[in-house]
Structures are given as structure tokens and as C-alpha cells.
Simulated assay, not measured.
Amino acid sequence: MSAHVPTVGVEEEFLLTEPDSGAPAPKNTLVADTAKRAGIDLQLELTSCQVETSSRVHTDIGALLTELRTSRRRVAECAAEHGTRLLAVAVPPTVPAGYPVTDTPRYQRIAHSFGMIAHEQGLCGCHVHVAVPDRETAVLVSNHVRPRLPILLALTANSAIYRGSETGYASWRSILWRRWPSAGPPPYFASLGDYESIVAMMRASGSILDNKMVYWDVRPSETFPTVEIRVSDVAATVEESALLAALIRGIVVTALEAIAHDIPAPAVSGDVLRAAYWNAARSGLDGAGLDLVAGRVVPHQELLAALVDDISSALDRCGDRGFVTEAVSALAERGNGARRQLAAMHRRHEIADVISEIADATLEGCR
């Protein structure tokens, strides 16, 4: 493995639920306190039924996968101490009328400023960080990542059931998430200055309250020297999270190579990109999407295969080709979270079966 392979880290957001009903359980502070005593640092999310884990940075995807397995198992144990179940699902399968907002000054200010958008949250994603030299490079990389965002969404779609019913979408989270004024695919930026100018205008308008509310699906991290890709639902299984991380690192390494050779990113129209997002959210990995460069409709499975082929040199450089090939094959056979949820629902049309399937997937390979 090359010494110049960028490091990668993963943040996973989880739902805390009542074990039997699957209803969100507002106990994130209790679970986080228990986890802290066990040496686990959990982040609190906007709503009090959510927690977030953050991995260490890794160059080896196998080591990342091992950490993700341990992390999910241990956090699930902490949740169980408070009578709750940890679910890796992107929207609550059963929900109350609203969600209590976590009692911190910043989250309370967001709730006051954005109203029902904040109170109907409970959405769980997966964020992947890849090291880059500087923020200018992160912005240029984001231009290259933009056309790849819909297939990453289709890959991890894990929110087909909401309020006890089928939504008609593989990723309902993606549809709900884009209600935020700063969410979704980012614009094409000419430079870091262009990025910062747009962010400053958003902040001045009140559409974001601070830079952490730049919710675009790829952005320079405000905390780490990384580019952060945040388009995905939280993956159903740890293997899917590791696959996502390997693919994203391959995309970023390929982008860095293009930037080094002055190869511009495809200037994909924002409207066309949003249409591709809708297709990815609607059908997930099992339907058709848009090839944004060629301008044609293609099954998402073919788009995924084309992505792996396009970044194959980067996967080889990172030592990830074998893992990615095996994980993609396994995912195509088993199905992602959305397919598994729908299969469970169609067996008896009982939401309990869906919750059980989600719970099994959450800790699959972690015990």
C-alpha cells in the first residue's frame, strides 16, 4: 500500500428506540453518559432520540471495518442499559407526532429558527471524511464528487418505511433532509473564495446560523483537514459502511489525480443533478438512475459497476479492490437496507418484522 494513501474516517448516526414498538426513545444524553464511562465518545444529534459515533482515521479499510463492528456492538450495549435498542436506520419506522430537540443552546436555537423542520427530524446519515491537503483542494474535489453523489445515495438507501407505512422511496430520508435550505448537492464552485462567498451570503440571510449548518452532501470539513461526503443514509450493516468509505476514498483519490493534471470536473447542471437524486431516492440500488456525464438512463447496478471501473486505479493504490469487489457482489445478492425493509414488510405486513430486520442488520457481523 502506498505511503500517500489518504486516511479515511466514518461517522454513523443511529436511532434510539423502544425495543418492542420501534418508537424513538429520547434518551441520547443518558446513553452518551453511559458510553462515556465505558470510554466511548458519542455525539448528541439535533433530536434526543439520536446518537453519533466517530471512528478513528484509517488507511486500511479492514481496520476501519473492525472498529465499526466493535463500535456498534458497544454502543448497542450502552443503549440496552437504558431499555432502548440501537437501530441503523435512516428514518424512524414508527414515529410520534414530533421529536424532542436535544437540550443544548445551539440545538434549541436551530429549533427556534427553523420550526417544524427541526421538530420532524430523527434522520440518520453516514458521513465519510477523506484527508486532503487543504480547503482549496477540498472545494475542487467536491466538484469532481458531485456527479457521483446519486449512486452513493442509491447504494446505501435505508429508509423505505416511515410512520409504519411504505413511503414509495428507498431513501425517504433524502427527501425529508432536503427541506433544509442548505441541504442536498452543492453548487459547482470556481474556488475556495467562491465557496466562502456563498456560505457568507447564506449566513447573512439566516438560512444557516453558522458554518456547521452547511449541510451540502459534500463539503470541506469545518473541524478536520478533510473533504466530507454526507449524502448517504446510515448503512444497514457495517460492511456497507466500510464499502461506502472505500468507494468514497477511491473517488477522492481519482479526483486528486485529475486536479493534479488540470482535468476539470464535469459541470453538471444542478437541476439535472437533483433529478438524479430523486431517481436514486425513489428506486435505490434496484432501479434506474441517470448517467450524468453521458446523459442517459442506466440501471443503478450498472452505474455502480461503472463507478468501480472508473476508480479502479485508485482502489488498487489504496489496496481496496478485492474488498470492494466482494462487498459489491454480496450487496447485490443480499440487498441494501431498503430492499431488506420492504422484504420484511411484505412477508406479513407487520411493522414488527421490519423493526426486527433492521435490528438484525444493525449488528450483523458485530457479535
Rank of each mutant, 00 (worst) to 15 (best):
A3W: 00
V5K: 01
D20T: 02
A23I: 05
P24C: 01
A25S: 14
T29S: 14
T34S: 11
L42C: 06
E52K: 11
S54W: 06
S55N: 01
D60Y: 00
G62E: 06
T66P: 08
L86D: 15
P93N: 04
V95D: 07
P96D: 13
P96A: 14
T102W: 02
Y107W: 01
I110E: 00
I110Q: 00
A118M: 10
H119D: 04
L123P: 03
C124K: 02
H129Q: 01
P133E: 07
R135W: 03
S142H: 12
V145W: 13
V145N: 06
P147C: 05
N158T: 00
R163E: 08
S171K: 03
S174A: 14
W177F: 10
S182Q: 13
G184Y: 14
D194I: 10
E196F: 08
S197V: 02
R203S: 01
W216H: 11
P220A: 05
S232E: 11
A235F: 09
E240K: 10
D262K: 15
V268W: 15
G270E: 13
L273C: 14
L273Y: 13
W278T: 09
A280I: 04
G284N: 03
L290I: 13
L290D: 13
L290Q: 04
Q301C: 00
D310H: 09
I311H: 03
R317S: 15
R334L: 07
G337Q: 07
Q341F: 08
A361H: 08
E364C: 11
E364R: 13
